[in-house]
């Protein structure tokens, strides 16, 4: 047993965190919903992202990637959540892994790894899973993406961003097919499909972890500096008790990310998917609950556009819903565990 990040992973977390913070600093929340900065990164920022190797992280070396393990990818995604990065890194990682699983040609994956081809995953209209086709699908975390592929290999151009809760990521509809860009893909084996699913759920848990821990840190900082009745509000027991339970949720979610990320690469696919469903169910509940507490701890200012608090809650709710919330996964787990003969 060795549970926790090794020195290299910690160094990668620091380096990714530094770039994520820098990217976040360049994004402007604006003064209100009509003034918020686009999550589409500038050419310069996207070049920095590609230079950092983020789109290439999970792709295998023969596909122009870095062949990183899921734990490393989760380390990066936690930092994306922590800094609420408004750039479609997560969408790119998810689309790249789907395409790799479906046997996309190396040339396509190399172009994604290099940041030259900007892709987004297609999800069904309820955001529960990858879409079976482009009909009614949504291109998820797709700011700046030029194309999205359906499992049959058809390529689709994307429309304008739809109104969405999350101001740091865009959702768009596929508009028209782009026959010239179509790929030859093959259906995945059951194991490959389960492992892909486990990988994606794990990344969402990591994004929730980063989001909730950043929100809690900010709330604690606020509680230490904001005074009422002549004392910091963080000295009041009601505030302390709430914040303490939130840290329990954050640390439990961290344990869930560690296990689920390890499981993607180490356990049989069905077990890895089961672990990821457990982690996603837990983190969906915990992440939103912590962000809601943080709104409460900030008080009135947390309800304004001037404060970043709503950005975390928006991101957490979107992560929670994407690829299934706690109800979705608990229903599946109930069937797995409780069906007669299971």
């Amino acid at each position: 047993m060795q549970i926790g990040l090794d020195p290299e992973q910690r160094a990668f977390a620091r380096a990714s965190g530094a770039l994520a913070a820098d990217l976040a600093a360049g994004w402007d929340r604006g003064r209100g919903p009509h003034d918020v900065g686009s999550p589409e990164p500038s050419e310069k920022d996207w070049a920095r992202i590609a230079d950092a190797g983020w789109p290439a992280l999970r792709l295998r070396e023969e596909n122009g990637g870095l062949g990183a393990g899921t734990v490393d990818v989760a380390v990066l995604v936690e930092q994306l959540g922590r800094h609420a990065v408004a750039a479609p890194v997560l969408g790119t990682l998810v689309a790249a892994e789907q395409l790799q699983t479906l046997g996309a040609p190396a040339a396509t994956l190399e172009a994604i790894a290099a940041g030259e081809l900007r892709v987004a995953p297609l999800l069904d209209a309820r955001l529960l899973d990858f879409a079976p086709s482009a009909d009614g699908a949504l291109a998820w975390d797709s700011a700046g993406a030029t194309v999205a592929f359906a499992p049959d290999g058809s390529a689709h151009a994307l429309g304008e961003p739809l109104p969405a809760a999350d101001v740091t990521r865009a959702v768009r509809r596929p508009t028209s097919p782009v026959p010239a860009a179509a790929l030859e893909l093959r259906p995945p084996t059951d194991d490959d499909r389960d492992r892909l699913h486990a990988f994606v759920l794990t990344l969402l848990v990591a994004d929730l972890l980063g989001t909730m821990s950043a929100a809690l840190d900010a709330a604690v900082e606020h509680a230490r500096s904001r005074t009422q009745f002549g004392r910091p509000i963080g000295s009041f027991q009601a505030v302390q008790q709430l914040a303490a339970e939130d840290l329990v949720s954050v640390e439990a979610t961290r344990s869930a990310v560690y296990h689920s990320a390890w499981a993607v690469d180490a356990l049989p696919a069905a077990e890895a998917l089961r672990a990821a469903r457990v982690a996603k169910a837990f983190a969906s509940r915990a992440g939103v609950a912590v962000c809601e507490d943080v709104v409460q701890l900030f008080g009135g200012i947390g309800m304004t556009w001037e404060s970043p608090v709503h950005v975390w809650l928006r991101r957490a709710q979107t992560d929670r819903t994407s690829f299934g919330d706690e109800h979705t996964h608990q229903a599946v787990l109930a069937d797995l565990d409780l069906a007669p003969g299971a």
């Binding site: 439990a252 344990s255 869930a256 837990f282 229903a331 409780l338």
Partner: peptide, 19 residues
């Protein structure tokens, strides 16, 4: 569903205790 939810919590607890 409640049984499944608490099974989720118990599983996360066991991972957390190991960690």
């Amino acid at each position: 569903r409640r049984l499944a939810a608490v099974a989720v919590d118990a599983q996360v607890l066991s991972w957390h205790v190991a960690r």
